[in-house]
Amino acid sequence: MELGRLEYLQALVTEFQVTDSPEAKEQVLANLANFAYDPKNYEYLRQLQVLDLFLDMLAEDNETLVEFAIGGLCNLCLDKTNKDYILEANGVESIINCLSSSNEETVMSAVTTLMYLTTPQSRQQTTALPVVECMLRFSLSASRRLSNLATVFLEDYCTPLQVEEARNLSKHTAVGIPLPKD
C-alpha cells in the first residue's frame, strides 16, 4: 500500500518532466502540491526531490505553475526537515518574489510560507524590511483574507520597531506596488 503511494508519486513526477503540454504540467503540479498537504507523503516527496521541483517552478513565467508550486511549499514547509531544506536551498528569496504576484492565491501562500519558515536564524531574511513594507500594504487590502494574514504576520512575526521602520519608509515612497487582483 505504502509502496503504491511512492510509485504513484514517482509516476506523477515523471509525467511532469516528460509532458510537453502546459495543461498537463499544471494538473500534475497541482496534484503534487495537494499531496504535499498530508505529512504522510513528506518522506516520499523528499525522496523524489519534489521540494526542488516546487522551488524551481517559482521562477516560471506561467502564473499558474507558480501558484501551485508556492501552494505546495506552503503545504509542506512546516515540517522541520522540509523547512531546513528550503532555507538551505535559499528558497526564501524566490518566495519573497511571489509577494509581488498579481495572483492573490500566490501572495497568500507566500505570506503563510514566510511565517512558517521563520526561525530565529531565518528571521532576518523572512522579515526583511521590504517584506514588512509589503505586509503593511497587504494589511490594508480590501480582501479580508489577505489583510488578516498580513496583520498576523505584522503582529506575531515582526517587532514593533520593524513595523515602525517600514511605516516610516513607506511614507516617503507613496507609490507602491499594486495590490494583487482578486
Partner: peptide
Amino acid sequence: MNILVYSFFFFSPQVYTINLE
C-alpha cells in the same frame, strides 16, 4: 498514461492550502 487521463478529468485544478480552509 493513466495519470494523464486521471488528471485531465479535473478540468481546472486547484491547490488546497490552509489559507483556503
